[in-house]
Write a protein that binds this DNA or RNA. Structure first.
Lengths: 218, 218
DNA sequence: GGCCTGTCAAGAGCACTGCTCTCGCTTTGT
DNA sequence: ACAAAGCGAGAGCAGTGCTCTTGACAGGCC
């Protein structure tokens, strides 16, 4: 038996657990995620799962990190640096919205209310900012501070490096607007209010683009 | 024994259950809310609680309605119709934020991700719109459509009666921004990003006021 | 080769949950 | 006064997270 057998088997089991957990998360939501049922589906007994995952909270944490990475990757992939600024902006917004519609439970997990008695651990912090970074990159390259209204300086200076100070606050505001719009749509607050969700979303995206000084396409 | 004893006792028990449930919600979060532990604290056995509440989900639904009403009431109380438009606007925004800080679990319950396998029932819909109605009322009275950029018409016509069509979409956008800003702050996304949260929030509120055509105070 | 140590899956078990059903007791309406 | 309805208590079922112990297997060392 070649050495490394054990390590490979462990890695495979680990992946199987994570995959099944994400499947159950998508199907029944975060609170219904059960370690025992994951174990059943993977084909082992619940206590064995604890060899791979310290607790249910740790399993959730791993899913959170994976979800942040997935939506961040999607946002990065949607951005074509050669395209006009507003097209880039709209593509990233749409990508985040599309990802949220495809993975509502995961979106809720990362951007919704934190699960019960669960404090987001440190390891989620780096992954959390990826969407914001993509948006900021577009603003860094194409944002024109001259047209935008002044904002107070209320941010940490080092958080969005390269961003003109006049645009850093509107960038955070725009990021918030993206989150809020997708969240409201996903969690049902636009029910019976907004009828043409696609058009509404694009309009909000366009307004946000203006607010961060992206040039109008003429 | 005077008649009505039973009805009064029932009302009192009902209140006690709701109060204890809200207490536990505030302390441990929605997912940790347990009917059995509510029963223990109220001083009865768990099966007896089912005489008052059909299920755990129904208990959550009642808490949701109460929370919507509470934040709505707070928003209504914060609005002084005699004050200048932008002051009214800011007061309502601040009231919602303050309520959210005082009742984070309840805010998460109503505006955060829906709890596991739980579909918001019909009875929550009327209560849900109260904050939006207060904001809309300010815009109806003081909003000036002339200065605001045009938006596509994507809303249900009857949802915000009295609102100039040109201002209805920005009003929904502003409402979304309020929700997103409070949510991001509450759920930790502004950690290490926004340092002066008060100033940031007021700035966002002011920008939103402009977007719905409230007159600048000169 | 043989052994020994560390890893693994499995099972039993504890304390907890939501929910149902049955049992008596008390209050209510007739 | 009597039947009907409402009520609290208890037992019980199926499920959960998590711990501990047991026995089997693979890895590296001699």
């Amino acid at each position: 038996m070649p050495p490394g057998t054990r390590a490979r088997a462990r890695a495979e089991t680990s992946r199987a657990i994570l995959d099944e957990a994400r499947r159950q998360l998508a199907e029944h939501g975060a609170a219904a995620l059960s370690l025992r049922s994951v174990a059943r589906e993977v084909g082992m007994v619940s206590s064995a799962v604890y060899r791979y995952v310290a607790s249910r909270d740790e399993l959730l944490t791993r899913l959170i990190v994976e979800a942040y990475d997935a939506v961040g990757e999607r946002a990065e992939a949607a951005r074509d640096p050669e395209a006009p600024a507003r097209e880039q902006w709209r593509a990233v917004w749409r990508a985040v919205r599309a990802w949220a519609h495809e993975h509502p439970a995961e979106y809720a997990l990362i951007y919704g209310s934190p699960v019960p008695g669960y404090a987001a651990p440190v390891e989620t912090i780096p992954a959390a900012g990826r969407v914001g970074v993509v948006l900021a990159a577009i603003v860094v390259e194409h944002g024109d501070p001259s047209g935008v209204a002044p904002w107070p300086e209320v941010l940490r200076a080092d958080v969005l490096p390269g961003l003109p100070p006049a645009l850093s606050v509107p960038a955070v505001v725009a990021w918030t607007q993206l989150y809020g719009t997708v969240g409201f749509e996903l969690f049902g607050q636009y029910e019976n209010v907004v009828v043409d969700r696609d058009a509404y979303f694009d309009a909000v995206a366009a307004a946000a683009a203006t607010s961060v000084g992206l040039p109008e396409k003429i």
